[in-house]
Computed example of a mutant assay.
Amino acid sequence: MAGQFEIFTDAESNVRFRLLAADGTVLATSGAFEDKREAANAIMAVRECAGTGLIREVRSNPWTGQRSGRGQGSTAPRRRHLPAV
């Protein structure tokens, strides 16, 4: 059995969705949406890009929340694409 998306209303009355694995494990939870239609549109967008999306590692400094670069003078972001598992 494949995983599934589940649309629900949170404690603040926002509509959200979560992606569940076949065994019911929550794999991802969305941000808040104003209504079910917006959540459904976001699910369609996830379905469309998830199969072809690359994995990118982004490192942050836990003290400042800023992304760390390669070095002091480097302005180019470090990109590392990982194969899908």
Rank of each mutant, 00 (worst) to 15 (best):
I7M: 02
F8K: 02
T9E: 06
T9V: 13
T9H: 04
D10Y: 00
A11I: 14
A11N: 12
E12V: 14
S13L: 10
S13E: 06
S13R: 09
S13F: 09
N14S: 13
N14M: 08
R16Y: 04
F17A: 00
R18L: 03
R18C: 04
R18Q: 06
L19C: 11
L20R: 05
L20I: 05
A21G: 10
A21Y: 06
A21N: 12
A22W: 07
A22I: 07
A22V: 06
D23L: 11
D23P: 07
D23I: 10
G24M: 02
G24K: 04
G24E: 02
T25H: 08
T25F: 03
T25E: 09
V26R: 08
L27E: 09
L27F: 05
A28S: 11
A28C: 04
T29R: 11
T29W: 09
S30Q: 07
S30I: 02
G31R: 15
A32N: 12
A32L: 10
F33E: 04
F33H: 07
F33A: 01
F33R: 05
F33I: 05
E34R: 10
D35T: 07
K36N: 02
R37C: 09
R37P: 04
R37N: 13
R37F: 08
A40P: 01
N41G: 09
N41Y: 03
I43W: 02
I43F: 02
M44I: 14
M44E: 11
M44Y: 09
A45W: 13
V46M: 15
V46I: 15
R47N: 06
E48W: 13
E48Y: 14
C49V: 11
C49G: 05
C49N: 07
C49I: 15
A50E: 08
A50N: 04
G51V: 08
G51C: 01
G51I: 03
G53Q: 12
L54V: 13
L54D: 13
L54R: 15
I55S: 06
R56K: 11
R56G: 00
E57K: 12
E57F: 10
E57H: 13
V58N: 08
V58D: 05
V58M: 06
V58T: 10
V58G: 05
V58I: 13
R59T: 05
R59W: 14
R59S: 03
S60G: 02
S60C: 09
P62W: 15
P62G: 08
P62D: 10
W63D: 12
W63R: 15
W63Y: 13
T64D: 00
T64K: 02
T64Q: 01
T64M: 01
G65Q: 09
